[in-house]
């Protein structure tokens, strides 16, 4: 009889092939501006803001993800929230923009392990092989909008709006149970 093969590995010794974890809060900002002021505001915040959708610029512990032609998502350590807001305000007169704190709008899950990519396919319609390590995109997970970060071959993060998070988490847990059972 033919046996079915899956392209993920179930780790021996009872370890789950994928882990899903809540992540600690971070400072998050939504930044929107015109191309003419990209350099100035970026400089104020410590970045060369990327232009290509899905690219991420990093500066120390801060990251700026290009979500759209005029939109960036900034993640930073919580302690830097006020400094970021102040830097934006300082640049506003010369380079008008919108910098809105959304630290509490979303929460994040870390999805890691050899079956991490496979787990995401339970509800993410994108071809994840085409999401290179280091990049991130806004997409959907089931019916929830998410920002999906790829931090490594087997390491992803999901930013989910707070009230959608329990639903996303429940699906991830269901998928994780399947994968742990070898299905």
């Amino acid at each position: 009889m033919t046996t079915q093969t899956h392209d993920f590995t179930v780790i021996e010794g009872g370890t789950a092939p994928v882990r899903v974890e809540d992540m600690a809060p971070v400072a998050r900002f939504s930044l929107r501006l015109r191309e003419a002021h990209r350099a100035a505001v970026g400089q104020a915040l410590g970045f060369d803001l990327p232009q290509r959708v899905g690219d991420v610029a990093r500066a120390k512990a801060r990251a700026a993800l290009c979500l759209g032609p005029d939109e960036w998502l900034i993640h930073a350590p919580e302690a830097e929230a006020e400094a970021i807001a102040a830097a934006g305000a300082g640049a506003y007169a010369e380079a008008p923009h919108s910098l809105v704190e959304i630290s509490d709008r979303e929460i994040s899950y870390a999805i890691t392990g050899p079956a991490a990519r496979e787990l995401l396919t339970i509800a993410c319609p994108r071809d994840l092989d085409r999401l290179a390590t280091g990049r991130a995109v806004r997409t959907v997970f089931d019916t929830a909008q998410v920002v999906l970060w790829r931090d490594g071959e087997d390491a992803f993060r999901l930013d989910v709006w707070r009230s959608f998070a329990p639903h996303v988490r429940a699906l991830l847990d269901a998928g994780q149970a399947e994968l742990s059972a070898g299905f």
Partner: peptide, 8 residues
């Protein structure tokens, strides 16, 4: 520019 803060 517009930003949703419903859940913030």
């Amino acid at each position: 520019w517009l930003t949703s803060t419903t859940e913030q």
